[in-house]
Amino acid sequence: MKDTDTAPAGARTPRLAGRGALIGALVLFAIFAVLPFAAHAAGDPFFIVTATRIIVFAIAALSLDLILGYGAIVSFGHAAFMGIGAYSVAILATHGIGDVLVQALVAVLASALFALVTGAISLRTKGVYFIMITLAFGQMAYFFMVSLSAYGGDDGLTLYDRSTLFGAPLLDGDIGLYYAALAVLVGAFFLLRAVVASRFGRVLRGTRDNRVRMQAIGFSPYPYQLTAYVLAGAIAGLAGVLLANQTEFVSPAYMTWQRSGELIVMVVLGGMGTLTGAIAGAVGFLMLEEILSSLWVHWHIVFGALLVLIVLYTRGGLAGLAGRVFGGRRR
C-alpha cells in the first residue's frame, strides 16, 4: 500500500531553488505589468481579457499549490471555492450590495467556512480517500448551486454591473480590473511565500515529507493541514470574486470537478511547491487552451493525450523535467 502522505510526487523530484523561483515570479510579474501596453501597441487590446482570466486562475492555482505542493494534500474540489467566491459577488449584487470590499469579505469568509467544515471531515482521512472526498464535496457545492433556482440554478446568474469601490466604478474598465487582479496575485504570492517560509510552513512541509517523523517529534499535523486548507480556500474564493467580475456572469459550471482537475494540472505541470510554478502553469495551461481551441474543435483530445503522455513519459511532469535540465537542488 503506497502512502500518498509520505511519498508525494514533488518530494522526490528536484525543483528549482527558492531564489530562482522568486526571480522567475518577479520576471512574470514584470511581464504582466507591461502587458496592457504591449497588447495595445500590438493592436490586440482584447488580449487583456484573456490575460485577466489567466491571472485569476493563477491566483487559484497559487492557493492550491499551498496545500498540494507544500502539504501534499491532493484536493480535487478546489474549484468549489472559486465558485463560492463568484457566487458571493453575484448574490450580493442582486441584493444591491456592489461594493467590492464587502463582496470580497463575504467571499473570503464563505469559502473559508466551507473549507473549514469540509476540511475538518476530509482531513481525517488520507491518500486516495481524501481525493475522492474532496471531489464529492466539490460536487455537493455544484449540485447545491444547480438546484438553487432562486439564484439562477443551472442557468447561472448575470452580473449587470461590475463591483464598485466606495461607489466608484474602478473595475468597470478592462484595464482597471486587470491591474486589480494583478495586485491580488502579487499580494497572494508574497503572502504565501511568507507563510511557507514561516514555522507554520516548515511544519506543513515536514508533514509532507514524513508525517510519521513529524508526529514523532511532537507535532500534530491535523491543525496545520486544516489551517492551510482554509487559507487556500479563502484565497481561491478571492480569485472567484475576480472571476465573477471578469466574466460578469456566474454559473455552477465554475464549480465542476473538471475545473478542479484543471487547477491540479496547472499546479503539477508548472511545478509543485514552488508557487512560481503554479503561476507559470496557469499561464501555460490557458495559453495552450486558447491556441488549441482556436485550431481544432476537438482540441480536448490533443490536450488530454498530451497530459497522459507527459505523466507517462516525463516522471514528475514538466517541472521535474525542467528541474533535471537546470539541475535545481532539492529543498
Binding site: V74, G261, I264, G304, V308
Partner: peptide
C-alpha cells in the same frame, strides 16, 4: 499498466487526461 507503481497524484492526472480524450472521442 504504467501507472500501477506511480503515486496517486500522477494516476489522477493521467486518468484525467484520458477522460478528456475519451469523452471528446465519443463526441467525435
Amino acid at each position: 499498466r504504467q501507472l500501477y507503481d506511480r503515486d496517486h497524484l500522477e494516476q489522477v492526472l493521467a486518468t484525467f487526461g484520458l477522460i478528456l480524450v475519451l469523452n471528446e472521442g465519443v463526441l467525435m
